[in-house]
Amino acid sequence: MYGGESATQFAGATGYMGEPDASGMKPRASGGNQPNTMTPVTVKMIKGALDARASPDDEIKVNGMAIMNITLVGKVVDVQTKGSQVVYRLDDSTGQTDVKVWLDSDGPVEEIPRGAYVRVYGTPKAVGADQVIAAHTTESIRVITDFNEITYHLLEVIYASGYAAKVKSGGGATGVAPQSVYSAVQAAPNVAADGDMNGSLCDRVLFIVKNNPNGDTGISVLEVVEKLGGQFTDAAVRQELESLSNDGAVYTTVDEDHYQAV
């Protein structure tokens, strides 16, 4: 549903997507370490994730991935100041949650009025039946003035969720997370295993380079052109390979005419 190429750029640019890193670095160890990522969510998703835990010590999993930090966008429907903290009741159209903001010692922070849309960065917490979002700092809740941010956030929620599903389907079968987002894209069901005659030129070129039989020498541009059945010019294929090279998905080997997949 989303193009592999743009997906990669997006994941790399925002750092939201967690485990596989667009730069080709090894994914963070799953398990013991808390994932140090920022996941865009809805209240419904967080509530579901908190409820799904067998014990409060379990990690919180959204889209099948353990999460730590979340961001959400919602409307303030209630505000209460309790000593050193302000509790905002937020409605994001999927549900409501309290967001706790601990105040700095140096003076009061101006309260955000009811009815305002805000962006929140925080960590989900559950103490007994009490499930809240703890804002990271007093600056982690901010009033939205451009309402396109609501659209943007919710599209990002959908995107991140779809991306996570792809990563899961790519790495889940063997229990090993894919080493790069490109392998995730390749393993995803929407890229056909037979060289993908309907895919974009980029996907097809990458598929051919990945499946070349020449070992370390890589595959020549000419061979890629031939494998594409002469549908594309040498120049077009070369340009695509350079673009993939710039993205870090392929690299040149013995000369500028031979490419190998990462």
Binding site: K44, G115, L155
Partner: peptide, 29 residues
């Protein structure tokens, strides 16, 4: 009501709402 101003991208929002009510519904309601 919330006033969204005079500069709101209705196309993107429209596409979002379609997703919310179809294949991405589980994330929202």
């Amino acid at each position: 009501r919330v006033e969204f101003g005079d500069d709101f991208d209705t196309f993107s929002y429209g596409e979002l709402v379609k997703l919310i009510n179809t294949k991405s519904r589980d994330l929202f309601y």
